[in-house]
Design a protein around this nucleic acid. Structure first.
Lengths: 135, 135
DNA sequence: TTTTACCCTATAGTTTTAGTAGATTATCTA
DNA sequence: TAGATAATCTACTAAAACTATAGGGTAAAA
């Protein structure tokens, strides 16, 4: 299942991508427009800022704004930041690899075999989609 | 993330698919061979039996055995039984569809758009793999 | 001094991953 | 045929992890 964190994060990004002249939008406004718990959204926007997608401005007239062009925001990056590994199993993860402790033979593992294909197919989708494609 | 339930279930299925003449294998043996908690595996095998993948036999010489040919066991079915919906969001699920309560416009939703592609790509993988392909 | 993002903590709820205890059924043996 | 044994079956419980959200205070910008 996609976490609400990711869902909300994606919605916030697409919302901000539509804003004219990238002027700052307040958390409250995004939350209201997208039906998101404001406090939850707060933490999501924070991680999006820390990971280089958004900029922020404090005080009156402040808020969040996109600091990249939507065309340059790949879904692979967004998903990894918000949702974590794209692979469904650590032993087939490119960026978060970990050996299964219960599995002696990775090459002979049926789960490994299947999940490798699933990872590749998901990866292809995410690589072929930028934020601009979702608008 | 893939649940351990699914992971163990897949491992058990591939293990049983390799058994000569489909003779019954005890839970304990599968659990030991695949490093799985026996009691947990017990409940997994039960749902696999209830869903028509396995047969069981009680008493001495009893155990579980495959009742279909591995070539006839599609991963779509297995995944839906063990893991649940293949879609990451209910609003793009074929078998478990549900409307998002926070989302007024499904067609205009960026998450919907993206997850539809992810679902289709995953579905293609699962459709192209039977249990036999994992051996 | 108001407005906004920032930061930390707590918590209710849910899901996952088991573990415990015993009932039930089939087979084997005396 | 009776009883012992071997296995699945069932239900309940529980610990742990994760998710989603709320509260309250701090810092910075206007």
């Amino acid at each position: 299942m996609l976490s609400k964190k990711t869902k909300y994060g994606l919605k916030a990004l697409t919302f901000l991508a539509k804003v004219k002249d990238r002027e700052p939008i307040q958390i409250a406004e995004i939350a209201k427009h997208e039906n998101i718990s404001q406090k939850f959204l707060e933490s999501i926007l924070l991680t999006l800022r820390r990971n280089g997608f958004l900029g922020s401005k404090k005080g009156k007239g402040g808020g969040y704004y996109l600091i990249k062009e939507p065309e340059d925001i790949l879904m692979t990056t967004v998903m990894r930041v918000l949702e974590g590994p794209i692979a469904m199993v650590p032993c087939v993860s490119l960026n978060f690899y970990e050996k299964c402790d219960d599995c002696p033979d990775e090459e002979g593992c049926s789960v490994h075999k299947l999940m490798l294909q699933v990872r590749d197919s998901a990866l292809e989708v995410y690589r072929n989609n930028t934020l601009a494609d979702l608008l």
